[in-house]
Design a protein around this nucleic acid. Structure first.
Lengths: 121, 121
DNA sequence: CCGGTAACTGAAAAATTCTTTCAACTAGGA
DNA sequence: TCCTAGTTGAAAGAATTTTTCAGTTACCGG
């Protein structure tokens, strides 16, 4: 953080702490966890952390959500209760990548599985 | 369309025609293809087509985009030029689905590949 | 420990995006 | 052709995100 010429302010610490507490939070959920930080600063901090590759913005169908990007993972979204869960096993089989991708340099990918969770069945 | 008690209006036809012309358009791109249709009506038509399962809303990182959902496909997004291409071969290997998903009923999934396209390399 | 400064913050205003309201209009069945 | 449920669009409203700018602060160098 400081390496890039950025300051470690209490506000940034608070937002980061909020993000650590739970994944996939909406802006309002994050705000609720650090009410002392101004709205604009929350947005700016999320932007900054995004540029640093620490945070990722998602839209899983109900607007912006934010999560730490520490590790590669995917999402299972229950269309019944809205619960979002993660899994890290990656079911992508590179052998099955399409021919069109031959000259496409793959940097990353995202995978979301939609359906109904155990509790809702 | 008429089956569900909906009317086939010129506005709905125009929006649908715009969607057929190109995939992954932003709202403004769609609007530009049917300037005679009011903003509100475009939103409402996209909603309606969404409920009917004809149209899908996406957020690939730069806000809402809309596409026909006729066939199952995935996206390759070039982070250099922003170009979005589709592929239909699905590189998902069900055998590799995680154990947590055992009691999750999978209805659908989405997969996006990010990187750099051939032209940008 | 202290001062200087580039970086940061927050309130207000602005911009953007999307939704609601409501009076007028129309597609399509009777 | 008439009737009516469904549809449209302008305006207003709500929600979300960005910009501006004056005041504040972290932290580096001394």
């Amino acid at each position: 953080m400081r390496g890039g010429g950025y300051k470690a302010t209490p506000q940034r610490t608070a937002v980061l702490r909020a993000l650590i507490e739970e994944q996939h939070q909406s802006l309002e959920e994050i705000r609720a966890r650090c009410p002392e930080v101004g709205l604009v600063t929350v947005y700016r901090t999320l932007d900054l952390l995004g540029e640093l590759g620490i945070v990722r913005r998602l839209d899983l169908g109900d607007g912006s959500r934010y999560e730490l990007a520490e590790y590669h993972h995917h999402h299972m979204i229950c269309e019944s209760c809205g619960n979002i869960s993660e899994f890290q096993e990656c079911p992508l089989d590179p052998k099955l990548l399409p021919p069109e991708s031959a000259d496409f340099e793959v940097w990353s990918h995202s995978l979301e599985v939609y359906g109904r969770c155990g509790a809702c069945r």
